[in-house]
Structure formats: structure tokens, C-alpha cells
Design a binder for these strands. Structure first.
Lengths: 200, 200
DNA sequence: ACCTGAACACCGTTCAAGT
DNA sequence: ACCTGAACACCGTTCAAGT
């Protein structure tokens, strides 16, 4: 059983297993992936360049799975759709966030997605000198709200008396409802202020 | 040498070592901390409740180190100062982000900091029903821009031809200068839109 | 009370051996 | 070409032994 007639593994299979583990909130290391695929950890190294390679694979699959293609809608509608989808993506894979933002992006599909965004902004009338900053703001937004959505049902649990926070928490929502309201307000504020500042 | 006359360790010493490692971008696990303190990993368990306890310790030290106390300035000035400091904090400890946002906050000093913020917002005239959402937006902002600041000098490196992104990158800044411009624009947009929406 | 050493079940990675 | 098994240097955690 040292070499099967038809391969058990491939980069695609490995990437998919890694993402499934990550989406389930479980560790997605070499050993965990091998366990899930019924294979020895060392087998993975025939298809993938270690843990770094696996992360690159995951990045590629994520762009595909959460891709939002411009359909000719107005820039603000596109931005809202993109923000919503990206937030979902980071919320589904919070453990992956530091690994994704810690490395330079070279993956062609990811570059293409950012190129789409840059093009929509330029065609929407944004000054070219500001486009990079706007892209960065959108990314920061999506990551921040994604992690917020992934955070526990109860974010704050005051032990002692508070002046304001405790009262606000009692009357406010919690869990996904709280995170959704936060995101919707934030997204609206952002898009509105972009429109105001760069009205064309 | 099984028990020293004066203890080698304490929760404070352990937390400080962990933060120093994290700030240096190095792993800050039990073994790494023990190595740095010239002690065996098992020794830490006399002072701290495992890795979870160490993270709680780090959280507490972080609030102190990056605390921004309201000084009676206007709410928007306070918000800007807070955003800047929090961004710095997350940028200095990107690896810690998923561990911090993944757990309910009970630490009294952290609760007190959020209580300060909630109080400033209420006194600044924000409707109480919106304060929780605004706090969430500020958090998301700080985390997102913090991770952006911690990201590599070159965030995008297109391999092939692009329609817009490549040109924008050539003419734009990179590294901290890019991240700073992004943050300053984002912070200004946010505070402006909060002022507009909740003008009192 | 507090540090140690041994032990355990993990982790990522390399590499010779097998087909 | 591709899976395995052994080996290595890690990791977090427990616990009896020492003072």
C-alpha cells in the first residue's frame, strides 16, 4: 500500500480539507489534515510545500468561494456586496486572519479580485491617488467586522458595577444580532462618507 | 535548587515575558516563555493557569500599557486618540488578535476601559440604543487597521498584467506610510460620519 | 510554596524504503 | 510518482519528587 494506483491526495483535496477544518473552528495543521484524509502527515509533503503552501492553497480557494464579481452595478452597491461577503469570509475563518494578512499577496486570483475592486473605484470617479487608501479601509473594515462576528455570544461580561456599559448591555442585543447591527451601521456610515467625500 | 529562597516567577513576570515575545513577533507559548526566563516549562504552572491564563494576563497588561483615559476633551478627539492607540496595540501584537477577540471579556480593567468609552459616547450625545454598535465599529476599525499596519511592506505583488491595480501601486506609497495614510483617511471618514449622523 | 525531571500526547518536517 | 515509517526537534500539560 505504499503507492496507490490512483492518488489519494492532491493540492485541491488538501486545501479543501484544511478549509473544512478551519470553518469548523478546529486546528488545520498538517497532522489534523492528514487525520481527516486518512493518510500519514508525511504524505502531504508529496503535494504541498509544508504549512506555508497549505495556507496559500487556502487563500486561493477562499477567493473563489467568496468572490464577488462586478456586474455593472454602481460602485456603492458593489462595495456593500463586497464588504458583506468578505466579512462572512473572515468570520468563517478567524484563525486564518493573521496568516493571510501576514504575507504579501501574489496569488493571481487574489490579485485579480483586488484589480476588479480598484477598477470599480476608478470608474466610479475616485481619484487614483486615494484608491489604495480606500481599498485598505475596506479590507480593515471587513477583517474587523468579520472577527467581530466570530466573537462569542457575550463579548463583555462586567463583574462589578459600571457607570454606563452595564446598562447599555442590558438593553442591547447580543450575539449575531448585535454584530449584524454593528456591521450594517458601520457599512452605511462608510459608504455614505465615501460618497460625500468623493462625490463626482 | 528545587525551591529558591526568593521566587523566580510571578504572574507579572510571566505576562511581561509573553508580551515581550509577542511584540518581537516570536512565538509566546509556555516553552518559549520558560526559555526566556531561564526556567523549566512546568514551573510556570505554579503561577498561571496554562496558556489560557497567560493570554488573560497579557490582555490585562495590554489595557494598562495602551490605556487612553478621557481627559474631558470632546468625544471626537477622544475617539481619535483611542483609535490611534488601539491600532498601535493590535499592530504590535497581531498574533494575539484571534486569542483576544475569541473570548468573552471579564477582566475588570478591560471592562473599565470600555465603560469609559461608553460613558464618553453617552455624554457626547449619542443615543443609548446606538452606543453598543458604535463601540463595535470602533473595535473593528482598530483591529482592522492594526493588522493592516502589521502587514508586510509590500501587500500586493501582481505577477501578471492588471487593468488598474498595478498602476495604482506604482504611484502609491508602501509600508507604514501607506498604512498611515489609509488609517488617517479612515479615521477621519468615520468620525465625520458619526458627527453627521448623530449631531446633537 | 515553588522549581525540577520524567512522562505523555501532541505538532511540523525530513528522508530512506517500498511499490 | 506517491504513500509509509522512523526519526527529530518542537509543543502544552500533569504530577511525583525534592527542598
Amino acid at each position: 500500500m505504499s503507492r496507490p494506483s490512483t492518488p489519494l491526495l492532491s493540492p485541491e483535496i488538501i486545501g479543501e480539507a484544511a478549509l473544512a477544518l478551519s470553518a469548523a473552528g478546529e486546528p488545520f495543521g498538517v497532522n489534523a489534515i492528514a487525520r481527516r484524509l486518512g493518510v500519514r502527515p508525511s504524505s502531504l509533503y508529496n503535494h504541498v510545500d509544508g504549512m506555508d503552501g497549505i495556507v496559500e492553497l487556502m487563500r486561493g480557494r477562499l477567493v473563489e468561494d467568496y468572490r464577488v464579481e462586478p456586474q455593472g452595478e454602481s460602485w456603492d452597491e458593489y462595495l456593500l456586496a463586497l464588504l458583506r461577503e468578505q466579512r462572512r469570509m473572515y468570520a468563517d475563518h478567524p484563525q486564518l486572519v493573521p496568516l493571510l494578512v501576514g504575507k504579501t499577496i501574489t496569488h493571481p486570483a487574489v490579485i485579480a479580485a483586488y484589480d476588479d475592486l480598484a477598477t470599480v473605484l476608478v470608474e466610479g470617479g475616485f481619484p487614483e491617488g486615494d484608491v489604495l487608501a480606500v481599498i485598505g479601509i475596506l479590507d480593515a473594515f471587513a477583517i474587523g467586522f468579520g472577527l467581530d462576528l466570530a466573537s462569542p455570544e457575550e463579548v463583555w461580561q462586567p463583574g462589578e458595577e459600571t457607570r454606563t456599559l452595564g446598562r447599555i448591555l442590558e438593553n442591547g442585543e447580543r450575539g449575531d444580532a448585535r454584530s449584524d447591527r454593528t456591521f450594517e451601521l458601520g457599512a452605511r456610515l462608510l459608504v455614505d462618507s465615501l460618497r460625500t467625500r468623493f462625490r463626482s
